[in-house]
Simulated scan of single mutants.
Amino acid sequence: MAPLARTSTEAHLFMDLRPCDCGETASSWSSSVIELGDDLGSRYSGTCPSCGTEREFVFRLPDDIVLPVVGQVVYGDGAPSELLDPGEWLWVADRYAGAVPAQAAALDAEGRQEVRSRISAAIAAMDEVLAFVPAGADEVPAESFWSDLGRSVRDEEPGRFARDRLQVIRDTYQRILEEIDSSV
């Protein structure tokens, strides 16, 4: 059964994190809606610009489509992802937040918009990590990590997956976003 892609943003991020065998991560994808038995799915196909390999990803579509909201990054619907594990999501959040300059509020309008976009993506990725913490639990369970990248992020510093610590990071990113918005 094809994995569930809750949004096209999540599907594209998943594909970005799965390079071609030659190592190339860039590709122009064409997409189509397909039938997957009784379900609908999406097929993304493209040609690697480096080696010419044809690539394809197939995902199930959710019963309730999450529509994109202008100015917001939304990867999912609040349930844990089937595509990326919590370590991958934290890695993504780290990359987006790490690309934000320290004095972001002092940037020009175009620079602030870029920062806003990156911080919004980091917040959405942190929400995805938090979705893996079961109700009443204090941390993401070890069995939630299935990818090599996700397990390596967890193994590097397991304490980063404590609910309280994840929430503090997410709230910090939210404050940065509010500072950017208030500097307009």
Rank of each mutant, 00 (worst) to 15 (best):
L61G: 01
S28H: 13
F14K: 01
R163P: 02
L177S: 10
L90R: 12
P62A: 06
W89N: 04
D127N: 14
P158H: 09
R43Q: 14
W89L: 05
M1C: 08
L84P: 04
S28E: 14
I176T: 13
M15W: 02
W29K: 06
Q72C: 10
D181A: 13
E110Y: 06
P49K: 11
L17I: 01
E10S: 08
V184S: 14
F14Q: 02
Y75D: 07
R118T: 01
D171H: 15
R55N: 03
D148C: 09
S30Y: 01
S182Q: 13
G98F: 02
A162I: 04
V33F: 00
L107R: 11
G98A: 10
E10N: 07
E35M: 04
H12G: 07
G78C: 09
A79L: 12
F161I: 02
D21Q: 11
Q174S: 13
E156I: 00
G46F: 01
S81C: 11
V100D: 00
G111R: 03
Y44K: 00
P101Y: 01
V73M: 12
L149E: 06
L90W: 06
M15L: 11
A137Q: 13
E143W: 02
S81A: 12
D127C: 07
G87I: 04
V66Q: 14
D164H: 12
W29V: 00
P134T: 02
Q72R: 15
A2D: 14
D164W: 08
P19K: 11
A5V: 04
D77K: 04
G136P: 02
G46V: 00
E114M: 06
L107P: 04
W146Q: 13
R116S: 15
W89A: 03
F14T: 02
G150W: 01
A104P: 01
S147M: 10
R118G: 03
W91T: 06
V133Q: 05
C48W: 03
